Computed example of a mutant assay.
Amino acid sequence: MSTLPSALAEIVDDFAAVGASDKLTLLLEFSRELPPLPAELEQSAMEPVPECQSPLFLSVDDSDRDNVRLYFSAPPEAPTTRGFASILAQGLDGHSADEILGVPDDFYSALGLAEAVSPLRLRGMSAMLARIKRHLRG
């Protein structure tokens, strides 16, 4: 996937390098690495993503279009949702709006999680990316 920002491409490569049984383990590792919200950002000011099966909130700060900041909030008891949010945070945070808008809507299929995660859960990741892009298109 040549249109992926380098950080997101590395994550996709990490998932491609492990077998099916280890993909969920890797996703759980990402869930533990979801960055905390900055103190000045309250969840109530964030946009909910109702397509996710667990409560997920996101915030997009594109005041500097060359350095878009992404923030996610998901409860610890929702490791799949947190894992997806962490993948997007680690793969896209700090990239330009143009780079993020260039990410294919179905990039997550390259993670190879379809056998391990329900289509409803994958739809949640798709919805997160769609909302980020909608915000950037403003």
Rank of each mutant, 00 (worst) to 15 (best):
Q43M: 10
L113M: 03
Y71E: 08
S126E: 13
P104A: 12
L41M: 04
R82I: 10
V12P: 08
A89P: 07
Y108S: 15
L4T: 06
N67C: 12
I11Y: 05
V103L: 13
I100D: 03
A89Y: 04
C52L: 12
L88V: 05
D64N: 15
S54K: 14
G124A: 06
L122R: 07
F84Q: 07
A17C: 08
S126M: 00
L24K: 05
R69F: 00
F15R: 13
L88E: 00
E99P: 06
F72P: 15
S54W: 05
S44R: 15
L28S: 02
A114W: 00
D64I: 02
A89W: 06
A9E: 10
R69I: 00
S6I: 04
L37T: 01
S59P: 00
A130F: 05
L111M: 05
G112D: 05
L26D: 01
E47C: 03
L24R: 05
S73Y: 11
L122H: 02
E47D: 14
L37F: 06
F107M: 10
H135Y: 07
R123M: 09
L37A: 11
S86I: 09
V103M: 09
G138F: 00
D61V: 09
K133W: 02
P76R: 14
D105M: 10
P38C: 07
Q90H: 15
L120K: 07
F84D: 12
S118W: 00
L24E: 01
L120G: 09
E47Y: 04
L41C: 05
L28A: 14
F30L: 08
K23V: 01
E42F: 01
A9C: 08
S118N: 02
S6V: 13
P48T: 15
L113P: 01
S21G: 03
F72M: 12
E10M: 13
L34G: 06
G124E: 05
F30R: 08
R65Y: 01
E77Y: 06
R82K: 15
V103Q: 10
P35V: 04
